[in-house]
Computed example of a mutant assay.
Amino acid sequence: MMSDRRDTKGKSFHHSELFASIPPTCLPIVYHPNYNITFMGLEKLHPFDSGKWGKVIHFLKEEQFVSDENLVEAREASDEDLLVVHTKRYLNRLKWSVVVASITEIPPLMLLPNSLVKRRVLRPLRTQTGGTIMAGKLAIERGWAINVGGGFHHCSSDKGGGFCAYADITLAIRFLFDRVEGVSTATIIDLDAHQGNGHERDFLDDRRVFIMDVYNHNIYPGDGFAKRAIKRKVELEWGTEDSEYLQKVELHCEGALNELRPDVIVYNAGTDILDGDPLGGLSISPQGIIRRDELVFRAARRRGIPILMVTSGGYQKKTARIIADSILNLHLQGLIGADGSGSGPSAE
């Protein structure tokens, strides 16, 4: 049952638009056109495809799986929402263009007025963050939810980096812990090519959160301090291919969910594991990514655990098509339903 103004311990908290009721006719797929970053071509200075989220939706519409009517429209996270996790000091630092330039790795941003940077860069990221929080609530209500954006796993409460300015994964979990009765444990399954050091730092001493992280240990961020939070750590070598990768994902995903049966799974489904990705350094095929997502959803479904998926990193133009194809495959396999519920086979 959703609590409106008090958390499960009876403590009052701020009113948030992000936990507003969503019509049952909507699929638990969250998106807003404001996710996409277009800013005088400056976005092209970063390898990230800052329009990939809109392309995913375009492909899903082409296949007639989603429409403007059945999508959930994301809302921008307010300062009050962000302060559930972030420090005031950190949010104040984002008022400096040089700080945002450093976090997003787009140096020319430091030369622009912060009002522009806030509107054209930070607002899209805040809207995606709001989308992840909204999708968390939807996952509990419907059994699954997908935020077509989000997955900013390098950002912690007081530090951004790696194109991640807001800690949306931490925020989604904290909102659920605070506001939804019966949600007191969570498992993060982070399968982006990079170590998820942001949420790891945030949950370092929190025994309610079990973190599994499968990543290329040779690349950014190499955060040894944050690694102490990982309960299942799978470090991959350069060029890891489908067979070894999928075997490890399946083994450790099953192991993690057998070790702790959480109330919710947050699945960080980065596509930067794709062969040829300039930053990921792994060699997974498009079919391997689709199979990976299916393995995770199947493990969750078999145990009846709600799952929230965010799309995270992916630095090639073709990743949008792969994300769309993966979502369509989840539907084809009966792991997500067009009626907004999981439907179809739940066995392997």
Rank of each mutant, 00 (worst) to 15 (best):
E73Y: 03
H58V: 15
K44H: 03
K55F: 01
Y35N: 10
E63Y: 04
L45H: 08
S67K: 11
D68I: 14
E43Y: 11
N36R: 03
E63R: 10
V56Q: 00
Y31L: 12
P47A: 06
S67F: 12
P33E: 13
V30T: 05
M40K: 13
S67L: 09
S67E: 11
V66E: 01
L45A: 14
E69I: 10
L27V: 13
I29P: 00
V56H: 00
N34W: 02
N34I: 10
L45E: 12
N34K: 03
N70T: 10
K44N: 06
F59M: 12
V30Q: 03
H32N: 12
D49N: 07
L42D: 10
F39G: 10
D49E: 05
T25E: 08
K61E: 12
K44M: 07
E43Q: 15
V72N: 01
V72P: 00
G41L: 15
S50E: 06
V72D: 00
I57Q: 00
A74N: 02
I37M: 05
Y31C: 08
E73Q: 03
P33F: 11
G41A: 13
I37R: 03
K61A: 09
L71W: 02
F48H: 09
V66S: 03
P33T: 11
G51D: 03
D68Q: 15
K61M: 10
Y31P: 07
H46F: 04
I57E: 09
W53Q: 06
I29Q: 00
I37W: 01
Q64D: 15
Y35G: 14
E62V: 07
Y31K: 05
D68G: 14
S50W: 06
P33A: 15
G41M: 15
W53P: 02
E69R: 14
P33Y: 09
V72M: 02
I29D: 00
P33D: 13
F48R: 06
G54Y: 04
H58K: 13
V56R: 01
K61T: 10
K55L: 15
N70S: 13
K52T: 00
H46W: 04
E63G: 14
Y35P: 08
K44A: 04
L42H: 07
N70R: 11
K55I: 08
E43D: 12
G51F: 01
E73T: 06
S50I: 02
C26L: 06
E62T: 07
A74I: 09
E63H: 07
F39P: 07
M40F: 08
T38I: 12
Y31H: 07
L27R: 08
N36T: 06
A74H: 00
I57F: 07
L45D: 11
V30Y: 04
I29L: 04
T25L: 05
F65S: 11
K61D: 13
I37F: 03
F65M: 11
L42V: 08
N70C: 12
L45I: 08
P47C: 01
S50Q: 10
H32Q: 02
E62D: 07
V66G: 00
L71P: 00
